[in-house]
Design a protein around this nucleic acid. Structure first.
Lengths: 230, 230
DNA sequence: TAGATTGTTAATCGATTAACAATC
DNA sequence: TAGATTGTTAATCGATTAACAATC
């Protein structure tokens, strides 16, 4: 095997910094938009002006994953869009369940959010007997007690946690240990601490990911900035 | 005025890096929790273990704003909580309106989210004649056409944008230029570009803040991480 | 006073930007 | 070929961590 090839493989296997990862969905959005407008070619310079970042950053970011461009030409948008989509797993069709069918859980379930990102919503769960059995977004809400079992049997990838604060942690622990769920989209305004000692026998916690949507924190950040003036 | 005092004033007037600002709500949350548990004293070391950050970072962050601790003792939680609250403007009582009374707008309005952060919800607006006039969370939904006028007259600080993508930008421009709104909490999965040329006569755009809640991007970041494994 | 822990400076680390040779 | 633009290395900038003197 030629030296060059080994280097390339090594290069593209390096861990990507979170800063870069967090920018990927934004690139994906802009590229989608460009495709919608039937633009097929773009240079890092042009894209940088559109997105308000430096061309250098775009080239650096993309080169973490591969040389998707062509010198003297730029990037083929269709191709680049596809590559980033693959990197983000859009075509993997990850499956998700919503746990907590209150207002927020219902709103998310009814929105096109999941399907637009290639995520397939499979079921909704709740604790309340008033809600269990009712239909939301075409799903009959199931009992939260059956969530772990359901997730394991149906190989659910993502649990969307739209629960009150005090229930979130125990439910997440249950789903990650006995449900096999590998990703949590956490809407409760607290940090999830997974892998409490009493379930240390269970599978490796290290490959479980938590993505937080801390709305409260976001609102307060806005307030901080408003508070600066006057 | 003694030299020392000048230095202190200068020091605490320096712009705070976004990295620090984004951590403030999290500090505030943990301090609130500690107070609830009737803990009144904490060292940067103890807090760092609780929050999973370095003690050094905590001390650096806090010292952007003032010397809130006491050598040999640590931090008085009640005092520190108060200081951060002031920095975040919790007691300022910022006012907000929700623009877009669809599922998400309704969910946010009904949640305790605003009041818990000291933000006072004042009104809801929508375009749809079916929704205008209905009652949500104790508010009669108003016509979006009256939003700018209402915000100006009632000195509304924040507009929560829970609108479809294609309406968000024009509404935000209207509210910032003729409504006097100074902060946008943007739930549409796109970047707001404020201050389009045709309204360049209007007030300074530089003191308008946008805080994005890009749920779609967040979900895709989670997918990226899941996609790494297997 | 002695011990503890801050506030702060200096060192390290990582991320962004600039520059340019490679190359289409 | 000449011009354009990438991929990539080097320089800069900013953020985090470590260390320690100040001090309660």
């Amino acid at each position: 095997m030629p030296q060059e090839k080994i280097n390339k493989t090594e290069k593209y296997n390096k861990a990507i910094s979170p800063a870069v990862v967090n920018r990927l969905p934004r690139y994906y959005r802009y590229l989608s938009e460009l495709l919608r407008n039937e633009t097929f070619k773009i240079s890092s310079k042009e894209l940088s002006e559109l997105m308000n970042v430096t061309a250098s950053q775009i080239r650096q970011d993309l080169n973490c994953f591969g040389g998707f461009g062509q010198q003297g030409y730029g990037y083929n948008i269709q191709q680049l869009h596809g590559e980033i989509g693959r990197i983000l797993g859009v075509e993997r069709g990850f499956s998700a369940v919503v746990v907590g069918a209150g207002n927020l859980g219902r709103t998310l379930s009814k929105s096109g959010l999941f399907i637009k990102r290639g995520v397939i919503l499979k079921a909704l769960f709740d604790v309340s007997p008033d809600i269990i059995g009712t239909e939301i977004a075409g799903f009959v809400v199931k009992n939260i007690k059956d969530a772990a079992c359901y997730c394991r049997e149906n190989k659910v990838d993502i649990a969307v946690l739209t629960l009150p604060k005090d229930e979130t942690e125990s439910v997440a622990n249950m789903l990650s240990s006995s449900g096999g769920v590998k990703g949590f989209w956490n809407f409760s305004n607290m940090e999830l601490k997974l892998g409490t000692p009493d379930m240390s026998d269970e599978s490796d916690i290290s490959d479980i990911f938590v993505e937080n949507m801390h709305m409260g924190d976001s609102l307060m950040t806005l307030c901080y900035n408003l508070n600066l003036k006057k």
